[in-house]
Amino acid sequence: MTRTAMRHPGLNLGPAHADAEDTREEMIFGFWVFMMSDFVIFGLLFATYVVMLGGTAGGPGPHELFEMKSVFIETLILLTSSFTFGMASLALKYREDTKPLVIWLIVTLLLGVAFIAYELKDFHTMFGKGGVPSRSGFISAFFSLVPLHGLHVLAACIWLIALLGQIAVHGLDSFVKTGLLRLAILWHFLDIVWICIFSLVYLGGLT
């Protein structure tokens, strides 16, 4: 690959999209910096969660509240959506027409929505078992960490819809391209945060 094609991490669009790359390279770097700042927020919430593990105050703990099956399904959904977003990125990079791109994006969006729906169902089940944040510090810590990830997914979905709208109005111009690149970074990044969540919160809790 040429040097200009690899100017920032994440997907590089390459020389065929020089207009988008040259003018808006700073945006992608800036977005990475923002992601890292966000990463610190998640990191601190993870540390807080571990610190609060003992604060169950006699209420339900991980074994009573978590279900492995639905977490597994959520994990698979999110992983698949990361892959489909990758396919969308490739369509953006190598195809001139918007159709495959839009199809992959819509598949990704549906997976994102499915993830949120599953997660909400999960929270509902937890509430049914007495797992409400007002019950104990431990459950509070859970609900300050995991739903924040869900909110990020929701924001990413809204952003995706907005970008689909921009494609409809403006076509694939450089604004949309850099928008998609940044959204891709966010999407893959959220999957990484989810790895930490299912490993530390769910699997760690169910051990």
């Binding site: 700042s37 927020i41 919430l45 604060g55 105050a57 209420g59 007002s134 104990s136 510090g137 509070s140």
Partner: peptide, 30 residues
């Protein structure tokens, strides 16, 4: 350096608005 403050004030707000127990003196808060 700003994220820890964002976390601290957001959690305090959750305690105050949604009855969380992150920093309360009862029910496992710290």
């Amino acid at each position: 350096g700003m994220p820890p403050l964002t976390v601290a004030t957001a959690l305090l707000a959750l305690d105050r608005y949604l009855d969380f127990h992150m920093f309360t003196s009862d029910l496992g808060g710290n």
